[in-house]
Computed example of a mutant assay.
Amino acid sequence: MFTGSMVALITPMNEKGQICKSSLKKLINYHIKNGTSAIISVGTTGESATLNQHEHQYVIMLTLEIADGKIPIIAGTGANATTESILLTKKFENTGIIGCLTVTPYYNRPTQEGLYQHFKAISENTSLPQILYNVPSRTGCDLLPKTVIKLSKLKNIIGIKEATGDLSRVNQIKLKVNKNFVLISGDDATALDFINLGGKGVISVTANIAAKEMQDMCQLALNGNFTEAQKINQKLMPLHQHLFIESNPIPVKWIAKKLNLIQYNSLRLPMTPVSYSNRKKLEKIFKKSIIYKQ
Rank of each mutant, 00 (worst) to 15 (best):
F2G: 01
F2C: 01
G4F: 12
A8Y: 05
I10E: 04
T11V: 08
T11P: 03
P12A: 08
M13F: 15
E15A: 05
K16Q: 14
K16S: 12
K16W: 11
G17T: 09
G17K: 12
I19E: 10
I19N: 11
I19Q: 13
I19S: 07
C20A: 15
K21T: 15
S22N: 14
S23K: 03
I28E: 03
N29E: 15
N29H: 12
Y30T: 11
Y30W: 09
Y30G: 06
H31K: 02
H31W: 01
H31G: 02
K33T: 13
K33I: 06
G35N: 15
T36Y: 07
S37D: 08
S37G: 05
I39F: 02
I40K: 01
S41F: 01
G43N: 11
T45L: 03
G46W: 09
S48G: 14
T50Y: 06
T50M: 04
T50G: 08
L51G: 11
L51K: 08
N52K: 10
H54M: 11
E55R: 08
Q57D: 08
Y58H: 11
Y58R: 13
L62Y: 06
T63K: 02
T63I: 03
L64D: 05
I66L: 04
I66K: 04
I66A: 01
D68F: 11
G69R: 03
I74N: 05
I74L: 03
T77C: 00
A81V: 15
A81P: 06
T83R: 15
I86P: 12
I86A: 08
I86L: 07
L88R: 09
L88K: 01
K91L: 09
F92W: 00
F92H: 04
E93A: 02
T95D: 04
G96R: 04
I97M: 00
I97F: 00
I98P: 13
C100Y: 02
C100I: 04
L101A: 13
T102F: 00
T102A: 08
V103D: 03
V103L: 01
V103R: 07
T104Y: 05
T104S: 08
N108M: 02
R109H: 12
T111F: 00
G114C: 04
G114Q: 10
Y116F: 15
Y116M: 10
H118Y: 13
F119R: 06
F119D: 01
